[in-house]
Computed example of a mutant assay.
Amino acid sequence: MSSQLTRNELAALVSLAAAVGIPMMAPDRGLLPAVIIAFVLIAVERLIARLSFQNERFGDVVLGKVSTLVSDGVINMKELGISRLSHERVLAQLRSQGVLQLGSVSRYYMEASGNFALISNPAPVPGLCVLPPWDDAMLSFFKEHTEKQLCMQCGLPQKPVGKPYTCCPNCGNEKWVSAVEEITKTQLT
């Protein structure tokens, strides 16, 4: 349920539950404090909604904003840091949505509510494999493109062969791997 609510709505819900719980457990305390707290919470929530509608900057601070985690098959490491997400968590989320390699991702967003939104690339290109490196059975369904080298951490393509990067300018990683593309069932036969 928390992924469908904003941070403020979740805090209001928990506060309301705590305020109403006391009169339910101890009827001698009375219902008036719980009713006052409920009215204050509703008024504050409505005020925040109105102010965030009128001022976009206020809304971004209070309610959060959308983060672009993957753009054109490359993981945005700066946004991962801002969103406080690990590299492994993003790869796990992508796998749970059926993505096997980053070349099939046009955009991957983390919404303000904490949900993830995937925009698939209509014309997938070879990209970084998101599967664990130890899963040899699944890795056999990929065709490796040795001419296209990608950063092992974020999927940024290597410069042309003449002047390759020593370390990735996006994440600082020094390891490079070959891009992969999924093999369809017709290509297997």
Rank of each mutant, 00 (worst) to 15 (best):
S2T: 14
S3C: 03
R7Y: 12
L10R: 13
L10Y: 15
L13W: 12
V14E: 05
S15T: 15
L16Y: 05
A17I: 12
A17W: 03
A18Y: 00
V20C: 10
V20D: 01
G21P: 11
G21Y: 03
I22Q: 10
I22H: 05
I22F: 12
P27V: 04
R29P: 01
L31R: 08
L31W: 13
P33S: 07
A34M: 03
F39W: 08
A43Q: 05
V44P: 02
E45K: 04
R46F: 07
R46T: 07
L47F: 13
L47T: 13
A49H: 09
L51T: 07
S52Q: 09
F53V: 04
Q54G: 06
E56L: 11
R57E: 07
F58S: 06
F58Y: 10
D60N: 12
V61Q: 09
L63Q: 15
L63R: 15
G64R: 07
V66S: 14
S67L: 06
V70M: 02
V70C: 03
S71G: 11
S71I: 05
S71C: 11
G73R: 00
I75N: 01
M77Y: 10
E79D: 09
G81H: 12
I82W: 13
S83I: 02
R84W: 06
R84F: 09
R84D: 04
L85F: 07
S86P: 04
S86W: 03
E88R: 11
L91P: 06
L94H: 03
R95F: 02
S96L: 08
S96P: 06
S96K: 12
Q97G: 01
Q97H: 13
L100P: 01
L102M: 10
L102Q: 01
G103N: 02
V105C: 00
S106P: 05
S106E: 10
Y108N: 00
Y108T: 00
Y108I: 00
Y108Q: 00
Y108K: 00
Y109G: 01
M110C: 04
E111C: 02
A112D: 02
A112N: 04
S113W: 01
N115W: 02
F116M: 05
I119Y: 03
N121R: 03
P122D: 04
G127V: 03
G127T: 02
V130G: 03
L131Q: 10
P132H: 15
P133W: 08
P133G: 04
W134G: 12
D135R: 15
D135P: 05
A137R: 15
M138D: 11
S140I: 05
S140R: 15
F141D: 10
F141N: 15
F142A: 12
F142H: 13
F142W: 12
F142K: 09
K143I: 11
E144K: 15
H145A: 10
L150D: 01
M152Y: 08
M152G: 11
G155E: 04
L156I: 05
L156Q: 10
P157W: 02
P160V: 10
V161P: 05
G162D: 14
K163Y: 00
P164F: 00
Y165I: 03
Y165P: 01
T166H: 07
C167Y: 11
C167S: 15
P169F: 06
C171H: 05
C171A: 06
C171S: 14
G172M: 09
N173V: 08
N173T: 09
E174P: 03
K175E: 13
K175S: 13
W176T: 00
V177G: 05
V177H: 03
V177Q: 13
S178I: 09
E181D: 08
I183N: 05
T184K: 12
L188T: 06
L188D: 04
